[in-house]
Design a protein around this nucleic acid. Structure first.
Lengths: 195, 195
DNA sequence: TCTAACTCGTACAGTGCTGTTCGAGTTATG
DNA sequence: CATAACTCGAACAGCACTGTACGAGTTAGA
């Protein structure tokens, strides 16, 4: 997989990845034709750059994780107490988590689990570290496994996205409900602070 | 849709529904052939009773809701305070909620939304009533919309099922983590009781 | 026991997807 | 401007699925 030499090839790869990320992140059941069409590229060209659905999926997953980590890094969460960091993270970037959830559904059937998990690890580590810090600071609960809390976190993000998509909550309401709910789950019940 | 007259026909319909409920509830991407095979019935016979995938889906959904409501009714939740009722409901029947989630994925693409929502309503009403009661009793929070809390509830159930399926939690751990988490979400933060 | 009801395998048409091949056209780049 | 790199549509093979048709076999039930 040597980098393609000509500029138009690189530009098309870029377009394809952008379109695939957009599509995969917005609805299930996306086909290769859909991606090609959305990228403004022939189906044959798509296959020229990504020989199989799995290859495209892996590339999209890699990019999604990179974008997410980059977005989170830009928020300066390390300076905040863990619970405020979680709130700031959700307020600033929760759509990214939602996108990742849909994306997962579009990719999971194509890419081998290890390959997928390998790409996903940096995110897991980030969240794990944040939860561990909150626990050390005494603001997060210690009676439930960290892995469970992260899973619950993701599913609540997805829940908020569902509510918003269905029009039952405005974006602003959704994010605030999400913040309140996630903090209810994570916080040590001995503490009763407001954010 | 007149009831079939002969006993073997009714027996096969029964087998088909049972197999479909089992399959739809356990994994995504179930085909008509899968259902026929699992029911021990020819594919043609399956189509004789359920002319289309949508018909089968609607019938399965209807049965699933009926079973769920029946199971919940048998728990005597009305006699308990709302938070204990939620805990008892999860400890007794949480698998049913999980199954319904998978099932939804297998059916949602085939059946028209109104038809599906109509069947689902009794469950929604049940949960809505339970949450409203808890709010009236002062044990559940009043700062978030009921619809959101129900959505969060469902997604947390799904999260617990994921963790168990992945082997990261034993069934016993999963249900206890789920109970603790759901109660953290639902309870009025002013109160700090244990269950 | 006789018949209508039911079941079954096989085979077919139609659809939509993945992935490949071909051949001709376009474009970047030295 | 020449050529290699790239793109494109059209067409094909293969697969899996849904739904239908046929004809022969089995079974419930009066």
């Amino acid at each position: 997989m040597p980098e393609p030499r000509r500029a138009d090839a690189r530009r098309n790869i870029e377009r394809i990845l952008a379109a695939a990320l957009e599509l995969y992140g917005s609805r299930p059941g996306v086909s290769m034709s859909d991606v090609a069409k959305a990228a403004g590229v022939g189906r044959v060209t798509l296959y020229a750059h990504f020989p199989s659905r799995a290859d495209l999926g892996a590339a999209v997953a890699e990019r999604a994780v990179a974008e997410t980590v980059a977005a989170l890094s830009g928020l300066g969460l390390d300076a905040l107490p863990a619970d405020e960091a979680v709130a700031a993270m959700l307020r600033g970037q929760w759509r990214i988590f939602e996108r990742n959830e849909y994306l997962r559904g579009n990719i999971v059937a194509d890419v081998e689990p290890e390959r997928l998990r390998a790409g996903h690890d940096p995110l897991m580590e980030y969240l794990t570290a944040l939860l561990a810090r909150g626990r050390a600071e005494g603001v997060f609960r210690g009676d439930l496994p960290t892995g469970w809390l992260i899973t619950a976190f993701y599913h609540l993000v997805h829940a908020a996205a569902d509510e918003q998509r269905a029009g039952r909550l405005t974006p602003a309401e959704a994010v605030e409900a999400l913040v309140a709910t996630v903090l209810s789950v994570l916080r040590n019940s001995a503490v009763g602070q407001r954010d």
